[in-house]
Computed example of a mutant assay.
Amino acid sequence: MTMAVNSVLPPSTGRRQVSWGTPLTYALALAIAAVSIAPVIYVVIGGFRTTPQIVADPAGLPDPFVWDNYARVLTQSNFWQQAFNSAVIALGTTLAVVVLGLAAAFVLARYSFRGREGLYTFFTLGLLFPAGAAILPLYLMLRDLNLINSYYAVILPQVAFSLPLTIVILRPFLSAIPRELEDAAAIDGASRLGFLWRVAMPLSRPALVTVGVLAFVASWNSFLLPLLVLSDVNLHTLPLGVQNFSSQYTTDTAGVLAFTSLAMLPALLFFTLAEKQIVGGLQGAVKG
């Protein structure tokens, strides 16, 4: 009887099972969250204080709350112009990244042709190429194309550097769609583009939201590229506006914190609202 029971039980691996529900795990998660969120909270709260209050007690709370800093930033025409420029560039980048990335990932996932895996490897190598290393040749190329001081000078390079990650995330989702669905769509008279639009895109929604949010946030927070290619003040984005405001009002620490809070607010809200979709998209990419 003992031998029969032992034959049914799985062999022991000799490794201790790790429980991810322990208090230590939650403590580490809370510590990491605190380190990530604390600077954001400090900047937002600092905008409700005065500069003398910050100098006297850097870690204190507003007493009383001062709304003048935010009101002063919101009444500046430069802020709204920079917000408009950031929105145009970020939305243009996001739209181009999603459309081009979806098209490329669909071909790499659903078509069979010679050199497909080599082409996919070529795209993934883009993840190893830092954007900062290409700034000088990129600037020279944009100058020769007469794109300096235009939205395209920022949108096109951002799209190029965002496509590798986009394809890496989208391809597993599109590959996981059963071939039977594509055959059924073809029997109903749907073309390849019809299958992509009516079947593949709805099923890949978490991945599309993920790549869209990542592209939007990266574009909104971009600083180095706009700094080099946008010398016209009327085309400056909010990250450049933060730098200009900080240089102009070096002694107004509270005003700088208020400007910074308002500049990062859209990206934070956009990322927070799509958090669940982002997690689902990344999980699907890892499983694929």
Results as ranks from 00 to 15, higher is better:
Arg49Trp: 09
Phe123Asp: 07
Leu282Asp: 06
Ala29Tyr: 01
Leu196Cys: 06
Phe161His: 04
Phe270Met: 07
Asn85Phe: 03
Gly118Tyr: 11
Ile32Thr: 13
Leu119Pro: 10
Thr51Ala: 03
Ala105Gly: 04
Gly126Phe: 03
Ile45Ala: 15
Arg49Asp: 07
Asn69Val: 06
Val154Phe: 01
Gly132Leu: 12
Arg116His: 01
Leu136Arg: 11
Ala185Asn: 08
Gly255Trp: 08
Thr2Pro: 06
Gln53Cys: 10
Leu174Glu: 09
Thr237Asn: 10
Asp57Tyr: 05
Gly60Gln: 14
Thr237Phe: 03
Ala96Trp: 06
Gly212Thr: 07
Gly126Ala: 03
Leu225Asn: 03
Ala71Lys: 14
Arg15Gln: 13
Tyr26Cys: 00
Leu142Ser: 05
Leu156Arg: 03
Asp144Arg: 13
Thr93Lys: 09
Val213Thr: 15
Tyr111Arg: 15
Gly194Gln: 00
Arg15Ala: 13
Arg16Ala: 15
Ser19Thr: 09
Arg143Tyr: 03
Gly14Ile: 06
Leu142Thr: 11
Thr25Ala: 12
Trp220Pro: 08
Arg72Ser: 14
Ser231Glu: 12
Glu275Arg: 15
Ala131Ile: 14
Leu240Ser: 00
Leu9Ser: 08
Phe106Arg: 09
Val229Asn: 03
Val98Gly: 09
Pro226Thr: 05
Ala56Gln: 14
Met201Pro: 04
Leu125Glu: 06
Leu9Gly: 03
Pro266Asn: 05
Val168Ile: 12
Ala38Pro: 08
